[in-house]
């Protein structure tokens, strides 16, 4: 068994889990934060994306033990209290989601994307957004409104 202590969404949490427990299992099953989803088993769909120490990662492809000592932000921790993150607002206002299953991963990937581009001073145009979404699959929206949502939020972040 592995002892895992992680700061999740600003709160210190700890637990004893089997060493083989994936971070996403720890988040969903131990912490019961079920906003982070699992949509594939080959680390491609991106439904499980969370931030670890400020960077987007796939929580299905890392053990909880590997994340020990880190800070994790999940979709549940993105808003500031009742004030939604601009990316959340943009997804709503631009109809960037339908069934909602890929959405948490999309939003976490998108906020990371905008952060990286802002930090490096690069322009996040439509082509760049589409390339950057390589690790996130959506079956409902055809991506049109996801791209629009990210463009909209990028201008507000």
């Amino acid at each position: 068994m592995a002892s895992v202590s992680i700061k999740v969404n600003g709160k210190d949490v700890s637990g004893e889990v089997e060493d083989r427990t994936l971070l996403v299992e720890f988040i969903r099953e131990n912490l019961r934060l079920t906003g982070t989803h699992v949509g594939c088993d080959t680390s491609q769909c991106g439904a499980c994306v969370v931030h670890m120490d400020g960077k987007a990662i796939k929580s299905c492809s890392i053990l909880a033990a590997q994340a020990n000592g880190s800070e994790i932000t999940t979709i549940e921790g993105l808003a500031n209290g009742s004030e939604l993150h601009p990316m959340q607002t943009a997804f709503k206002e631009n109809h960037g989601l339908q069934c909602g299953f890929c959405t948490p991963g999309m939003i976490m990937a998108a906020t990371d994307m905008v952060r990286r581009y802002k930090e490096s001073g690069r322009e996040l145009d439509e082509t760049a957004i589409r390339e950057e979404l390589e690790g996130n699959i959506c079956r409902c929206t055809g991506y049109h409104n996801i791209v629009k949502s990210i463009q909209d939020a990028a201008s507000k972040m």
């Binding site: 991106g46 994306v49 670890m52 990662i57 796939k58 990937a109 390589e134 690790g135």
Partner: peptide
């Protein structure tokens, strides 16, 4: 890979 994979 993709941005998330590149972070790890």
């Amino acid at each position: 890979g993709d941005p998330h994979v590149r972070h790890m």
